[in-house]
């Protein structure tokens, strides 16, 4: 039954390899951030970028300052924040539902956000708020409403994976139906606006969206990381986790609320961006295994990496009219998912 293999020394080596993988991914992300900042319809060299960055938002070169500080920087930061939020939310969702096909949108959050945004665009000016603020607020509120519905079911029926998924599917279809109803009622012009919102685009980014999404991510992070060992223990199954003294239902409800907050913060300003939350966790697990102390940061870095890369690709493929990142991730997501599936070892573990 016993076979050759190292002991504690092997563990230390494994930790060093995982740290190296996370640092390498962070360096690739840094390179992509620079590429995203120098890419755009008006172009900008690295040197010009450096000058505009050092001069600040009030720099003497007004055009360069406006391009960097008002357009590209918010978009790049939003790509990082949304990607990281979706990566984290995706990994947590796949872990608590014990399902590799789960994503942050499995429980109907995106459908709810989409309905909120569509309703706000259709009814435009219903509140005193400007449209650029009213639409994300409506999307955010509807996501929280969907969260509340699923949470209520989990509270009264227990938070087992299958109950969460069934409640989530009910919420998903409910909000999808409402979204279709709003689209059916909309005029062609309004319908075009709704469809554009649903694409998922970084063009809607602003410093306000960066601050709100960033604040939500920063607020959630300590709670996410505090549950790293619990999430790892949950990978051995509910029965095993419970027998180690864990309150599995309470932990699942807690993580579910964190996922909801992260997703609401991510999609309210940019619209639905698919596949990032599905693929990033797979890449993270393949790179660093399922010790969530490493898998969580890696999923966040990978999510950010995918979205920043999609942003660069969107600008390079169509320099005149930037292709929304939601379309890029949807198209690129399928081959990426297949690549991850083929790269997976039948019985891995790093």
């Amino acid at each position: 039954m016993t076979e050759p293999g190292p002991g504690i020394g092997g563990y230390a080596r494994r930790i060093r390899l995982r740290s190296a993988a996370a640092v390498a991914a962070a360096l690739v992300l840094l390179a992509l951030i620079l590429a995203d900042l120098v890419t755009g319809p008006s172009g900008m060299s690295l040197e010009a970028l450096n000058r505009a960055f050092r001069a600040g938002p009030q720099g003497a070169d007004r055009a360069a300052a406006a391009i960097l500080w008002q357009i590209r920087m918010p978009q790049t930061l939003m790509a990082i924040l949304v990607g990281a939020s979706l990566g984290l939310a995706g990994l947590m969702m796949q872990t608590i539902l014990a399902n590799p096909l789960a994503s942050p949108f499995t429980l109907g959050f995106s459908a709810a956000a989409g309905f909120g945004a569509a309703l706000s665009i259709l009814l435009g000016g219903l509140t005193a708020l400007p449209q650029w603020l009213e639409t994300p607020l409506a999307a955010f509120s509807m996501t929280l409403l969907a969260t509340g519905l699923v949470y209520l079911v989990a509270r009264f029926k227990g938070a087992q994976a299958e109950i969460l998924v069934l409640a989530g599917i009910a919420v998903l279809f409910f909000f999808q139906a409402l979204q279709s109803l709003v689209q059916f009622m909309a005029s062609p012009e309004v319908l075009q606006q709704i469809v554009f919102w649903l694409f998922g685009s970084l063009l809607k980014s602003s410093w306000t969206s960066v601050q709100v999404t960033g604040a939500i991510l920063l607020l959630c992070l300590p709670f996410v990381l505090r549950d790293a060992w619990n999430l790892t223990a949950l990978r051995l199954g509910d029965a095993n986790a419970a027998s180690l003294g864990m309150d599995v239902d309470a932990m699942r409800r807690r993580v579910f609320l964190l996922v909801a907050a992260l997703v609401a913060g991510a999609v309210s300003f940019t619209g639905t961006i698919g596949f990032v939350g599905l693929i990033a966790p797979h890449v993270a697990r393949a790179a660093v295994g399922e010790d969530h102390r490493f898998a969580l940061p890696m999923a966040a870095i990978t999510g950010a990496l995918i979205l920043v890369a999609a942003s660069v690709a969107g600008k390079l493929l169509s320099p005149g009219a930037v292709i929304p990142v939601g379309i890029i991730t949807a198209i690129a997501g399928i081959p990426m998912l297949l690549a991850v599936l083929f790269a997976l070892k039948p019985a891995g573990g790093r």
Binding site: Y11, W229, T232, L236, N240, E290, D291
Partner: peptide, 27 residues
């Protein structure tokens, strides 16, 4: 320990045993 069940997690054997001390583990 409940009745025998298969587990499939990308963890090493040592990491799995380490989880037994979950409550006291730090970063």
């Amino acid at each position: 320990m409940p009745q025998a069940f298969q587990v499939s997690a990308r963890l090493s054997v040592l990491e799995c045993v380490l989880l037994g001390r979950r409550e006291g583990l730090g970063w």
